[in-house]
Design a protein around this nucleic acid. Structure first.
Lengths: 199, 199
DNA sequence: TTAAAATTTAACTATTTGGTTAGTTCATTT
DNA sequence: AAATGAACTAACCAAATAGTTAAATTTTAA
């Protein structure tokens, strides 16, 4: 009847692997480093995951889900347009502030031009913008907002929320300060987006 | 009187190295691949640049200069605020559209947590925002615009111009389309920024 | 023409690293 | 207590890769 079968080594490996992949990328990550981090042998990684690729896939897929998994439920909600926008911004900023490393990891690695990676990237989450598109079209036809496509809106929201995180290292040398969290980011994003829409 | 002194091997190496580093990052890049690309021996790379690090530094520094080198002259110009903003946006979009790979390269590599890289990133271009800051303060005191810091403005411009490029691979699987260049990007960026400022 | 300097090559070394394999420990089952 | 199988270790291997060296070839200049 014993339940706690093991120390949860597999989970520990994933956790350590995430840190290693985040900091060094797929190519730069070292299995030995991951193993050392949790005090097991490198062979354990091959015991649970067969190859470095498989381990990476696991970590990468979890990361994509972690970052983008929360948007579909919001997009599909039956709520007023402006409330939906605010929820999308909230979701965005939460991910940006709580999981900055994971965010950078996903964007960085998805840009790599390695054949086996590319196929992995393609089978990912897809956002269904149909409903939002309809809401925007209706609001535009009522002259409540300017005519803007859903993907353009999402892209703008993502840009304002995610860019500060993605550019954080660059900003430090460019401005000698880290602007990632300068106070009321939500206010700025909403101001920018809403003024743009209702101009 | 012969002028074409050499085949310009050194330049060819840099060019090939840039492509290799851009596609695979520092860790993933292979010197052999760079050499093969231009039909020389790997030893040639060590002849001109002593180590992989040195070659990378050269490529990286050139890339940073290529992307961010054009902003300081604009920031220091004595021109009206809104004209300056337009020129900054133009500069941004030009880099984003003409050198997307270089742009991604700089942002990706600068995020790596490898000690010797970190020190390299710190001795980079710094943008002097003093003048723009003054122009914004004056316009704000005249109630022409809302009160916004220079770094916040620059960050917003960068976000709107650079994010579409940085997110291009992600967008393909997220929206099943590439929004990098959707028609009048300049109009969208200017609309967004100006409506935000003058709301 | 010729000697020296710059450029390029081929073969080699040392090290790192992903992956393998044979065997050990230990809890559970029979 | 013997058998079984999962979790794990230590030592090893083969491949890849950055870096070296000495010799050959080409360029340059005297």
């Amino acid at each position: 009847m014993a339940v706690d079968t093991s120390t949860g080594t597999k989970e520990e490996i994933i956790k350590a692997a995430r840190a290693e992949f985040v900091n060094h990328g797929y190519e730069g990550a070292r299995l030995q480093q991951i193993a050392d981090q949790i005090g097991v042998t490198k062979a354990m990684i091959h015991y649970y995951f067969n190859t470095k690729k498989r381990l990476f896939e696991q970590v990468y897929n979890e990361s994509v889900e972690e970052i983008f998994g929360g948007f579909s439920p919001i997009l599909e909600k039956n709520i007023p347009l402006f409330q939906k926008i605010e929820e999308l911004v909230d979701e965005c900023l939460q991910k940006a502030q709580e999981q900055p490393e994971i965010l950078c990891f996903v964007f960085t690695e998805s840009g790599r031009k390695t054949d086996w990676l590319i196929s992995l990237f393609n089978e990912q989450i897809e956002l269904n913008l149909k409903l939002l598109e309809a809401q925007l079209a209706k609001a535009a036809s009522n002259y409540e907002i300017a005519s803007v496509s859903a993907s353009q809106l999402i892209l703008t929201i993502f840009a304002l929320c995610f860019y500060p995180v993605l550019s954080s290292p660059v900003n430090e040398s460019l401005f000698k300060i880290d602007h990632t969290f300068n106070g009321n980011q939500k206010g700025i994003v909403l101001d920018t987006v809403l003024n743009w829409l209702t101009a």
